[in-house]
């Protein structure tokens, strides 16, 4: 069994972390372990933009991955950005160890709408699958219902399902298998 760590960065609700653990276990066959909460990395906050630098978050995640874990997935409530883009739902190292999901813009409240927990959970599941998929080398999928489809707005997030299409699932499987084989 391979281990994936779920790392809450800053304040993250328990039910969200539980949901993420479940979706990672069910879809990849990773064993999951929840790391103790950690503060958002110092210096990541950009005062002009009022947002947090995803680059600093990723650096922090890469550095704090326990040696026994193959993957680390950071979950944060902070609103993320990279210099070129106005925001990010999440980020991952393609074929790498670290991935990151921000719940900030997945929440209805962000847009001044009444909170909807079920909708939030569904979005968190999709984006967690998506970013973890990238760490297994998957790239964006043209199938709009596949979790690996690129979403740059919530409509696209809500259109896709919280699972991979057949092709992406097969690809993820192959990668998982070769990860396990490397162990032997």
């Amino acid at each position: 069994m391979k281990l994936a760590c779920i790392a809450p960065v800053g304040f993250v609700e328990d039910d969200i972390l539980a949901e993420v653990e479940m979706v990672i276990r069910n879809n990849f066959g990773f064993e999951t372990q929840r790391l103790p909460g950690r503060p958002s990395p110092g210096g990541a906050f950009d005062h002009d933009r009022g947002q947090w630098s995803a680059i600093e978050f990723m650096k922090d995640l890469v550095a704090s991955r326990p040696p026994e874990a193959t993957r680390i997935l950071g979950i944060t409530s902070d609103d993320l950005f990279i210099p070129m883009l106005s925001f990010l739902f999440g980020q991952a190292q393609l074929n790498g160890a670290a991935a990151l999901v921000s719940t900030a813009r997945l929440r209805q409240e962000f847009y001044g709408l009444p909170s909807n927990r079920d909708l939030l959970m569904a979005r968190v599941r999709k984006e967690s699958l998506h970013e973890m998929g990238h760490t297994l080398g998957l790239i964006h999928c043209p199938d709009r219902s596949c979790a690996m489809c690129l979403s740059t707005n919530l409509e696209q997030v809500d259109t896709k399902l919280d699972r991979f299409c057949r092709a992406c699932a097969a690809s993820a499987n192959t990668r998982m298998r070769s990860l396990l084989e490397n162990d032997k």
Binding site: L94, I139, L150
Partner: peptide
């Protein structure tokens, strides 16, 4: 000229294949 800027956009586009 800003490496962070170029690299972060590059990483984002690589996810697209």
């Amino acid at each position: 000229d800003e490496e962070v800027m170029a690299e972060s956009l590059a990483a984002w586009l690589r996810e697209d294949g």
